[in-house]
């Protein structure tokens, strides 16, 4: 089963001079960790917004676990996916536990099952002692880890992460990446966007490189590196396909 199928996706925002997506297509099987990579303005955020059902595509098709992303399936698909936004989407003046209880409640979780789930994840992310501290007292890494927990409380089958390790120290980054690997081994598909290509090379089984609203290449990470003699790592592959021109 494919966990995600994107076919010929088009999107132009009202008032925009250029389309954001110009026939984007890619797919990947269930259980993989896919890196959605691209320079600034390539269309990654628009793609994620369409995948989540927040933004409607002008044309094209999206399927999540064989369910078309449309009005009828939107709520069902929301249950299948967890999204870790780039921002720390938490209430800074609530404690981590209060934040997680709130988002858990929104998912329909409550009582002891929710509390034990929260305790389990806080422990997994090394936050068990800081659960009662308000989030604004946290370090960048602690906030990022809590941000991830808030997206997986409902145990999604597909986890989408938008630069989950931006601005964190090496220890937090290692812990996050380790957790994602283990989480993936439990059968959860992961879509991951980052500008840290060495990190993507380490964690992703497949990558899709997007530029100017289209997928320029998709394949296994190792396979893509091996495909070109002049490429020694994923960063070389990325530059090979997207060029050296600045995208301001």
């Amino acid at each position: 089963m494919t966990s995600m199928l994107v076919q010929d996706l088009h999107k132009t925002y009202k008032g925009a001079l250029e389309p954001s997506l110009k026939g984007l297509s890619f797919s990947f099987p269930e259980g993989s960790i896919v890196g959605l990579l691209g320079p600034n303005g390539a269309g990654k955020t628009t793609t994620i917004s369409i995948l989540c059902g927040l933004v409607k595509a002008d044309a094209g098709q999206v399927q999540i676990f064989d369910q078309a992303q449309n009005t009828a399936n939107r709520e069902a698909i929301k249950k299948l996916i967890g999204v870790v936004p780039q921002q720390i989407a938490l209430f800074p003046h609530l404690t981590a536990i209060e934040n997680l209880e709130y988002f858990g409640n929104l998912y329909g979780l409550k009582g002891k099952p929710l509390r034990s789930l929260i305790d389990q994840y806080l422990q997994a992310f090394g936050l068990e002692k800081a659960g009662h501290k308000q989030v604004h007292h946290y370090s960048g890494g602690m906030k990022r880890r809590t941000n991830i927990i808030a997206a997986i409380l409902h145990q999604p089958r597909l986890l989408i992460l938008d630069e989950p390790t931006a601005g964190v120290d090496v220890q937090s980054r290692t812990m996050i990446l380790q957790f994602l690997r283990e989480y993936n081994q439990q059968g959860v598909s992961i879509v991951y966007t980052s500008h840290l290509l060495d990190e993507a090379q380490t964690i992703c089984s497949e990558v899709v490189i997007i530029d100017e609203g289209k997928a320029v290449v998709q394949g296994g990470t190792a396979e893509l590196i091996a495909r070109h003699d002049d490429c020694r790592n994923l960063e070389d592959v990325f530059l090979h396909y997207t060029g050296h021109a600045l995208r301001d």
Binding site: L54, K78, Q87, I88, L90, F103
Partner: peptide, 19 residues
């Protein structure tokens, strides 16, 4: 809206109207 928590609330299944 700025810190993304509204986005997170909208990504959670169920009506945003209840929130």
């Amino acid at each position: 809206r700025e810190d993304g928590s509204m986005l997170r609330m909208k990504l959670i299944p169920g009506s945003y109207l209840a929130i």
